[in-house]
């Protein structure tokens, strides 16, 4: 389409520790591959290179297309106050694998206050999960409120952790003022196609 900007789009994936960010990345990679989206991934592992290594070994993507950027113990800083090292990594990936359509940036596990700078990403999603507590949307953290896409993961666990999923979704929709909320189970892939549809329409402009 004529309004498609030059260069790869950058999409951020943030959210608390253990909410399923890496599992989500593992689910979206083959879906993007099938639709012909040329992809690279940057991870901001907080303590180790574990997430980057997991993706590199996954067999889902050329390991050279996965880069870890260290956060200097500051997971917020590297995606918000000073995203230059992530921008540098994105530029290096674009030079090496030109042309790329999309660079995914997976934040290190963080808390509800984390947000991405729009100097770094064009669009970002925030992943929470039902096991983290059904009251998370009510807490109105900046990640829940400001993200372009809110993902409620591990939907299958709701009955086991005493969470009313319907109420959690309703509260998330209420605090987000109409911005989309998507329910997923990243272990099975349920709900992930809807995420791809949103990114394709709102970021890649190629639906």
């Amino acid at each position: 389409m004529s309004n498609k900007p030059e260069g790869a789009a950058r999409v951020g994936i943030g959210g608390p520790v253990g909410s399923g960010k890496t599992a989500l990345v593992e689910q979206v990679i083959p879906r993007f591959a099938r639709r012909g989206t040329r992809l690279a991934v940057i991870t901001n592992d907080l303590v180790t290179k574990e997430d980057a290594e997991r993706l590199k070994r996954s067999g889902l993507i050329d390991p050279e297309r996965v880069v870890a950027v260290e956060a200097g113990a500051c997971p917020h800083t590297v995606i918000r106050e000073d995203p230059t090292l992530n921008l540098d990594a994105a530029e290096m990936l674009e030079l090496k694998f030109s042309p790329l359509d999309l660079v995914l940036l997976e934040s290190g596990g963080d808390n509800l206050a984390s947000t991405f700078s729009l100097e770094l990403v064009d669009y970002w999603m925030f992943v929470i999960d039902v096991a983290g507590g059904g009251d998370i949307p009510r807490k109105r953290g900046p990640g829940v409120l400001q993200s372009d896409l809110l993902i409620i993961n591990k939907s299958d666990l709701a009955p086991h952790v005493g969470v009313d999923l319907e109420q959690m979704i309703a509260e998330a929709e209420a605090v987000r003022g109409g911005k989309p909320v998507i329910v997923t189970n990243c272990r099975t892939g349920e709900g992930v196609d809807t995420i791809i549809d949103h990114v394709a329409r709102d970021v890649l402009f190629d639906t």
Binding site: E70, G72, C74, V78, E81, D82, T84, L85, D88
Partner: peptide
Amino acid sequence: SSFPSGGFAFSW
């Protein structure tokens, strides 16, 4: 130190 040039990620 708040100038955005990535210095926070290095311990040398």
